[in-house]
Amino acid sequence: MKVLERVTFDRVRAHFDREHPHDPADDGNTNDEAAGHLRSAQRTLGGRWHRVLLHGPEVLEVVLPWHLGEYGTVELIPPTGLTLERAAARLAALGDSYGETNPVCAAKLAHHRRSTAPAQPLFLSTRAVPGEDYAALTVRQGLIHLDGLHRMLAWRHSGRLAPGRWVEAYVAGLDGD
């Protein structure tokens, strides 16, 4: 990880809100939930945010919390959590059936796989935050997902997390400047 700079929560939220607006009319838009995770990280981790670059293989170790898949019927990530690498393996093993049982989640993954837009930053924390998605995580420290699950899974599938590739992230809870 390369720490670029310390940033304020206002800057983190402004970037998040600009890139991830909430649309209550869109059932698949869960940006309000992700914004809640950011606020929870702010409260829990004392307002220490940094903008960083993560080496592609480092992203594979990010811990993802419980994920049913937006109104789907197949749980992609159990309440105990999985690393991105293990979740990607589970998704691959499910194959085409995942799209049939979890169409909204599968559509988000397909969108990010096709996207040629510059990668949007991830939002992570160094500890699990309060909330039902994080309550049963077995890994409580490390790099923990706040926002970017579908992007990370799509990037893993498309090879964007290979050695030599870097991903920007905002991380709550890093020590030092």
Rank of each mutant, 00 (worst) to 15 (best):
55 H>V: 01
96 D>A: 15
25 A>Y: 09
134 Y>P: 00
104 V>Y: 02
74 V>A: 02
169 A>R: 01
174 L>R: 13
67 H>I: 01
115 S>Q: 05
43 R>H: 10
129 V>T: 03
74 V>L: 13
144 I>Q: 06
145 H>I: 00
126 T>W: 07
18 R>Q: 05
9 F>C: 11
97 S>W: 14
5 E>I: 04
95 G>Q: 14
160 R>K: 07
24 P>Q: 13
91 L>Q: 14
69 G>C: 08
30 T>V: 12
64 L>E: 01
42 Q>I: 00
173 G>C: 05
4 L>R: 15
141 Q>I: 00
56 G>D: 08
101 T>Q: 13
33 E>N: 01
127 R>K: 14
75 E>L: 09
11 R>W: 14
137 L>F: 00
36 G>V: 00
28 G>S: 12
58 E>A: 09
11 R>P: 08
13 R>V: 13
59 V>H: 08
15 H>Q: 12
126 T>P: 03
35 A>N: 02
80 T>D: 14
105 C>R: 10
52 V>K: 07
100 E>M: 13
77 I>E: 06
75 E>P: 03
68 L>H: 14
117 A>Q: 10
59 V>Y: 03
25 A>P: 01
150 H>L: 05
130 P>K: 06
27 D>G: 12
177 D>Q: 10
13 R>I: 11
94 L>V: 07
112 H>V: 09
41 A>W: 01
17 D>M: 10
28 G>E: 06
163 P>E: 10
79 P>Y: 08
